[in-house]
Design a protein around this nucleic acid. Structure first.
Lengths: 147, 147
DNA sequence: CTTGACCTTCCCATGATTGGAAGGCTTATC
DNA sequence: GATAAGCCTTCCAATCATGGGAAGGTCAAG
């Protein structure tokens, strides 16, 4: 099976398959005489595993560990669970940050009449809030990419 | 006030101030004879506005529009509100995606005994779920950066 | 005049992903 | 056998917001 078909059957784009190979998340597959990559059952299985993990928000680094554990028949399930719990904690952190933003924004939007007049509590807040209570943390405290 | 002090008083790093200038989010400030940037009251005010908007998750593009509306004394508050509501919708979308991931992960983790044995429902799910019900959407459907 | 703390510009890295260009291969059709 | 469509290959660039660092100029205090 060439890379296009592998992409279709695994749900991972050809671009990403090549990328995952490059960063050594997956092993280089066999090649035809003319340098075409060929994928077999096992490869597709692995790609599907990756696709599933990625859809659940795991990073490439986490997936590397998960794949290693998957292949290690003598792994301890505790190791897998620890990664999952850690990831859940990260997601919770992000969810909390988003919830906080939404709370503020909904409050502000709720007080903005939203008509032709220029008067706007949202802009007023942006302009006036000197940000006293939330001291200057490192920007976005790990929330990059959420906007 | 030079860029370091402006960074300290506005909560926006010097690096980012220069970047915002480069991408024309803010106007080039005055310079001393020796090319040092100097910032005044208005500039700090603008930087604080940006800091506040950024903390609420607005993208640079959205901030461009918000700044333009802020400076336009004849703006319609509806225009501001529309941006805010749009952003809230985006945040809600992300929150929903995160909640869905967490739900699945918590379920899987809850069924993993997490001890020395290799048996692990988490890995089993990753390996077996052929992803039938959720058809192949464009990867992460706009969730890049959440991992 | 030296030292240290600033400032300047420029380039590079991040993470996951997409896009495209330039060129080779395969397959089906004429 | 030629041709065209549709694959494949590698390489390079862009995204978004941010940080890191080098090489060199400047400023204030000792």
């Amino acid at each position: 099976m060439n890379i296009g078909e592998a992409a279709r059957t695994s749900g991972v784009s050809a671009k990403m398959i090549r990328y995952y190979e490059q960063i050594k998340l997956i092993d280089p597959p066999q090649r035809t005489e003319t340098s075409y990559r060929t994928y077999g059952e096992n490869d597709i299985h692995t790609l599907r595993f990756i696709r599933r993990a990625r859809d659940l928000g795991f990073s490439v680094e986490q997936m590397k560990t998960l794949l290693a554990l998957w292949r290690d028949r003598s792994r301890a399930s505790a190791d897998v669970k620890a990664i999952a719990l850690d990831h859940i904690a990260q997601l919770e952190h992000k969810a909390a940050a988003i919830a906080a933003m939404m709370k503020t924004l909904k409050h502000l939007a709720g007080h903005c009449h939203g008509d032709d007049r220029p008067d706007c509590p949202i802009l007023d807040d942006f302009a006036e809030a000197p940000d006293e209570n939330s001291p200057h943390l490192p920007p976005r405290f790990g929330l990059s990419g959420l906007a």
